[in-house]
Design a protein around this nucleic acid. Structure first.
Lengths: 265, 265
DNA sequence: ACCGTTAAATTGTATGACAATTGTGGAGGC
DNA sequence: GCCTCCACAATTGTCATACAATTTAACGGT
C-alpha cells in the first residue's frame, strides 16, 4: 500500500501514525472487543519502522484507546476507558463528527464548575488578574460582531477568570475543555445576536469579580452559562438548515492539530 | 550505574523508566527551564535500550512533563503544563509528598461537581443504577469502622452516583480524581468518628436519588462534601483560612427555584 | 559589526535480530 | 470420550547499530 500520508512533515512520524489510528478508532472502524493487525503488519501498512509504530501505540495506549499484550496483540478498549479529557482525543472526536450528546455533556459540566470558579475568582483575584479579566471583557465587546475572533476572545475571558481562581486543578480542566468549548461555540456562532445577548452578563461577571462580590459573580456566571446552553440547544434544534452546519471550520487535517497547544491566554 | 531498578518485572521496562523519570521530575530535581541528559546517556543510565527509553520519553511528553526537540534535547516543561488530570501524574504527585494546597484544590473541585452530579443522578438514574447506589451505601454502613476498606467503598459510592448521572465527561473527571481522592481519604482516615459522622448524609443522598428528588440530592451531597472538606482541613491542621463555601446556591435552569438565598439554613 | 555558511550535536528513523510471554492446539493419560 | 498437561507458535518486548534530518552555535567572510 505504502499509504502516502507522510506528506505533511510538520510533525513526527509517530504523531502522524497516532492521529491516523486514533481517528480510525473514533470512526468505530474496530469493535471494542478485538482488532488491529500485528505490529509488523501495521508498520508495513503505514510505511514506518516498528519502533516508530510502537511509539505511536504507546501514546494511544496512554490515551486509553488501546491495550497491548503479548500473543493477544493490541486490542481496542471500550469507549468507557477512553481518556475523554485528552485534548487530542477530544479533537478527533469532533473531526469524525460532533456528537450532540457530548455537547450537552460539555454544557452540563460547564454549568457545574464555571459559576463557582467565578466565585473563587471574585474572592482571590489579584489586581493584575482583575485587569486581565477586564481587558478580555473589553475585547469581547469590540469583537461582538465577529465570528471566530469572538470565540477566541471568549475562551480567553473564561480562561482569565479560571486563572484568577487560583486552583491549578481547575485550570487544567478548563484548558482541557477548550477544544469542545471551541466546537460548541462554532455551533452557536451562527445564531444571530447570540454574542450581543450574552454581553451584559459578561460585563456583570467581570464587574462582580472586580468588586469582590462572590455570590454576585457566581450567580451572573450561572446565568451566563445557562444562556449559552440555551443557545447550544437552539443551534442544535434547527439542524439541517444550512449546508455546512457540521462545523467544518475546525483546523482539521490540513495542519497539525491546533489544540496541541492549549493553555489559553 | 547499572541501577538495579529492573527488579519488579511485573510491567514493561519503559513503564518503569516512565515512573522513574516522572518521579524525579515531581521531586523538582530539574529546573523547568532545561535539563535531562541526552537519550544515549539516559538509556545508559537506566540500563535500557534507546527505543525503550524513547517510548518512555514519548509517554512523559504525552503527560506534558517534557518536550523533545532536535539539537536542544528534552527539556522539562513548566509545572503549568503538567497534565494534572493524568492518573499517573496524580499518583506521583502524592508519592513525592502530598501537597496541602493541592488537597484543598481537590476539595474545591469536588464541591463544584459532586452536588450537581447527584442532582443529575436523581433525575436520570435507572432502577438498576439506583440499586447499585443503595448497595454501595449499604456496604458503607457495614464498613463504617474500618479504614482502607471504607475508602474503597466510599469511592464506589460516589462512582455509582456519577455513573447514574449519564454524563461521560463527568464520569471521566471523577475517575481521574479517584487517585487524589483516595489520598485525601487516607489523610482523614485518622480522624476518629469521621466515617460515622458523614453516614447520615450518605444515606440522605442515596434516598433522595432513589426518590428522584433532585434538589434534595444536590443539597445533601453538598453538605456531605462540605463535611469531608472540613475533615480534610482538620486533618491537615488548618484553622479555617479558606473561604466559606458552604452555602453555594444552585437554582438550576428550568427547575423549581426553591433554594434558599444567602442566610444559611 | 553584521550576515551567511558550515559544522557538530541531538533527536528522528530504519533495520534486523533475539528474548519473553501467552494462548492454542495437540498429545498423552485417566 | 473427556480431561490435563505440555510443547509450540505467534505476538509483543527488548536490544544493538547505523544513518538521516534538524537545529543551534560557532566560525569566517564581507
Amino acid at each position: 500500500m505504502a499509504r502516502t500520508f507522510r506528506s505533511l512533515r510538520r510533525q513526527n512520524l509517530s504523531a502522524q501514525v497516532v492521529r491516523e489510528i486514533g481517528l480510525s478508532i473514533m470512526r468505530k472502524e474496530f469493535q471494542p472487543g478485538d482488532a488491529l493487525l500485528s505490529e509488523p503488519e501495521l508498520s508495513q501498512q503505514f510505511n514506518v519502522s516498528r519502533p516508530v509504530l510502537r511509539e505511536a501505540l504507546k501514546v494511544l495506549a496512554e490515551k486509553g484507546l488501546i491495550e497491548s499484550r503479548p500473543r493477544t496483540g493490541t486490542r481496542v478498549r471500550p469507549r468507557t476507558d477512553w481518556n475523554l479529557l485528552d485534548p487530542e482525543v477530544l479533537t478527533w472526536q469532533y473531526e469524525v463528527g460532533p456528537d450532540p450528546a457530548f455537547l450537552e455533556a460539555v454544557c452540563e459540566v460547564r454549568l457545574m464548575f464555571e459559576p463557582m470558579t467565578a466565585r473563587l475568582a471574585a474572592s482571590r483575584a489579584t489586581a493584575e488578574e482583575i485587569e486581565t479579566i477586564e481587558r478580555a471583557c473589553g475585547r469581547l465587546e469590540e469583537l461582538v460582531e465577529e465570528a471566530e475572533p469572538y470565540i477566541e476572545a471568549d475562551l480567553a475571558f473564561h480562561s482569565a477568570i479560571c486563572a484568577a481562581a487560583h486552583n491549578e486543578l481547575l485550570q487544567r480542566i478548563v484548558a482541557t475543555l477548550a477544544a469542545p468549548l471551541r466546537a460548541s461555540r462554532l455551533v452557536t456562532a451562527r445564531l444571530p445576536g447570540a454574542n450581543r445577548r450574552t454581553m451584559p452578563l459578561h460585563r456583570r461577571v467581570a464587574e462582580a469579580i472586580r468588586q469582590g462580590q462572590e455570590l454576585a459573580a457566581e450567580e451572573a456566571m450561572r446565568e451566563l452559562i445557562v444562556l449559552t446552553t440555551e443557545d447550544v440547544h437552539r443551534a442544535l434544534g434547527y439542524s439541517g438548515t444550512g449546508p455546512d452546519l457540521s462545523l467544518s471550520t475546525c483546523p482539521g487535517q490540513g495542519e497539525a492539530p491546533a489544540t496541541a497547544r492549549e493553555g489559553g491566554e
